Computed example of a mutant assay.
Amino acid sequence: MAITPTPLACIVLAHEDPTHVRRLVAALDPFPVFLHCDASTDDDVFEAMTAGLPERVHVLPRMRTGWAKWENVAAEVAGYRAALAQTDATHVALLTGSDYPLADADEISALLTANPGRSFVEAKPLPHPAWGRDGGRSRVRFRHWAWRKHMLRLPVPRRVPRDVVFGGGSQLKVLARHHAQGVVDVFDQRPDLVAFWERVWIGDETFVPSVLLTPDFTPDFADAHAAQPLWWIGWDGTKQKSPPWLGIEDAGRLLERRTSADQSTPYVFARKFSTSRSTDLLDVVDATFGLRTSADDQPVVVAQ
């Protein structure tokens, strides 16, 4: 199998809105994309999302992912595994199907080239102050299940692994190649941790941060990462489980925040976008940053 030379490989976890997913794929040109579509998504939506994609896009085997599911982590790791095997990327980014770049490939490549071996990821040891009164420790201490966007918790404490530094942070991240490989290695070599994390609450916010923060797994992480996020997320101050959808009315604050004084590294991605709510805003982003200029951005008409 040919190895693709690139500074960045992108994993995209998607479950709906094939029109936006295809727009996102085009905006990420020329980076290789490893696309996962939730197995719960209807087959016609999956077909619309994947038919006729360029050769740089690799469709991953489908898993039944969903809100707060462990399978989100499994799909993420499958993306790392494929990206490491099929490219020589120095970095691997994890995006969702509702994300979008705020920079062209040259700017993103320059940022990564200037930071060899360095990850851009939020990974804070628990207790995490933003995660409630106990700082998120109950996420790990008790067994959980997700049901229709509700948390089900078995109120019986369990033993936790003693050789892990538990941490948390955003699902969205850009990992240096050797850090992505380290995550895959722990996933493969520690089935006990995989079994434990299947019942951790929202494992995609804790598994990778915990692997990275554990010195036995990732000894160089403290000196080889930037806690500065690369995503601008349009939180509006209201209490909700997910960020609001962005529209043209958000153009000013999105573009202003991209290079704000308190952001030492410009945001190069943002969320949350959809075809129905965000098309006008995405047109502004494309025009501002010169995105979607290649032949990849050709519509494929598939019945949805």
Rank of each mutant, 00 (worst) to 15 (best):
H150C: 11
M151S: 11
V156S: 02
P157R: 09
P157N: 05
R158G: 06
V164M: 03
V165C: 08
F166S: 04
G167Q: 08
G167K: 04
G169M: 07
L172W: 14
L172Y: 14
L172K: 09
L172E: 11
V174G: 01
L175Y: 02
A176C: 07
H178K: 11
H178P: 12
H178D: 15
H179T: 11
H179E: 13
A180H: 07
Q181C: 13
V183C: 11
V183A: 10
V184D: 08
D185Q: 14
V186K: 00
V186H: 01
D192E: 12
D192M: 00
D192T: 02
V194A: 02
V194I: 10
R199V: 11
W201M: 14
G203P: 15
T206P: 05
F207P: 11
S210P: 13
V211P: 03
V211Y: 01
L212E: 04
L212G: 04
L213N: 05
T214R: 00
P215Q: 07
D216C: 14
D216W: 12
D216G: 14
T218A: 15
T218F: 07
P219A: 05
D220R: 09
A222K: 06
A222Q: 06
D223C: 02
A224C: 12
A224N: 14
L230M: 05
W231L: 06
I233L: 06
D236L: 05
T238I: 11
K241I: 12
K241D: 15
K241R: 15
S242K: 10
P243S: 08
P244Y: 13
W245P: 05
E249V: 09
